[in-house]
């Protein structure tokens, strides 16, 4: 969809709220449920202003009962509504996963495609601000691993708005995972690169399409969410050293744009995956498999992954920051790759 050139910059939080508001204006089936999404506007700003415009019937603060209200969203979606529910921190999935992966994700399949579950489960991910191991996880791989739900992860406000609009309009359940460090909440030390120009009118970003956010020839840096910004910083450093890095923003994990990954690595011959989720059995391994299962001869060097170590996330700043991916680690990984080649 073409849009007028936008000059207005929005945070991801504002972009998400704007997308929801625009869909609520044109579609009475859309409503929002979650904890503190009413007058507070969402702990991470995702529903700010909605209650003023749409009232308490369509913007419903819930009890702290994720099993009930996510289960309720499944029931409402199956009955013709288009609910958006917020799981405040993805880490809280442990108290409500049945509603997510056994109901939301499977009812369409179990019904032979006759029951649609058009709902959006939006949830915050990521850390870096010493919130420790029950409020800092990404769990991208956990959700992407389980069939029956689409999974999107925006890295900037433009994609955030377009992916939210697409998610609401999708006839399938979509898990919308937004990284706290990109939200634009003053108290969370926001990544500046996430706040970008966003058109005022409604538009969609297609679910399942990755984006080359920086072109390059020497290495493909593949990432998602906050990791995209680490990659962009690393690419700047590498450019000064005479190397051009391509940065691929996955944007969607389900469906995964495997063609875009293969095309990028096919051009550059080198692959570094950057993922703030746990190292093993996760997104980073999947991306590498996507390339080597298809064509291992395109690689000039063994692929690398920078992911979170297989440890619970520690509280203390030195330990926490040491474990997180960052631009320096990406640059080092590339240098190692070139040395070992």
């Amino acid at each position: 969809m073409t849009t007028k050139k936008a000059t207005r910059k929005l945070t991801i939080a504002r972009a998400m709220a704007e997308a929801i508001a625009q869909e609520m204006r044109i579609d009475p089936r859309v409503f929002v449920m979650g904890e503190d999404i009413g007058p507070l506007g969402g702990v991470f700003g995702t529903t700010r202003g909605l209650i003023t415009e749409f009232g308490t019937e369509r913007v419903r603060d819930t009890p702290i009962s994720e099993t009930a209200f996510i289960g309720a969203a499944v029931g409402a979606a199956s009955d013709g509504m288009r609910p958006i529910v917020e799981l405040m921190f993805v880490d809280f999935f442990g108290v409500c996963m049945d509603a997510i992966y056994n109901l939301m994700a499977k009812n369409t399949y179990f019904s032979g495609g006759k029951v649609r579950v058009p709902m959006v489960l939006m949830t915050s991910t990521g850390g870096g601000y010493s919130d420790a191991g029950q409020h800092s996880q990404c769990l991208y791989g956990t959700f992407a691993h389980l069939p029956g739900m689409k999974v999107v992860v925006p890295s900037n406000a433009y994609d955030a708005k377009g992916l939210m609009t697409a998610a609401i309009r999708d006839d399938n359940p979509v898990v919308y995972m937004y990284h706290k460090s990109l939200q634009g909440m003053g108290w969370l030390g926001t990544e500046k690169g996430a706040t970008v120009a966003v058109p005022e009118e409604s538009y969609t970003v297609e679910i399942g399409k990755a984006a080359v956010v920086r072109k390059g020839n020497d290495v493909s840096l593949v990432s998602l969410g906050a990791g995209v910004h680490h990659c962009l910083r690393a690419a700047e450093v590498l450019q000064k050293e005479g190397f051009s890095a391509e940065v691929l923003d996955l944007r969607s994990l389900v469906p995964l744009d495997r063609e875009a990954v293969r095309a990028s690595v096919g051009r550059t011959g080198r692959l570094i995956v950057v993922d703030e989720d746990y190292h093993s059995y996760g997104v980073s391994g999947e991306i590498i498999a996507t390339v080597v299962e298809h064509n291992h001869t395109c690689l000039k060097a063994a692929p690398k992954r920078l992911a979170y170590p297989d440890i619970p996330i520690p509280f203390a700043r030195p330990m926490e920051q040491w474990a997180l991916p960052n631009a320096d680690k990406i640059v080092d990984a590339f240098r190692q790759m070139m040395l070992n080649q």
Binding site: T67, A68, F69, I70, G71, A72, A73, V74, G75, A76, A77, S78, D79, G80, M81, P83, D98, A99, N102, L103, N107, F110, S111, G112, K114, V115
Partner: peptide, 26 residues
């Protein structure tokens, strides 16, 4: 699942309750 008569069931104990609440909300 028979959408024609709005019938669904689930093999997990207690997990049909949330969807029923949601259908009522709908």
């Amino acid at each position: 699942f028979d959408a024609r008569v709005n019938f669904a069931c689930s093999g997990i104990v207690g997990q049909g309750l949330g969807p029923a609440v949601g259908a009522a909300l709908s």
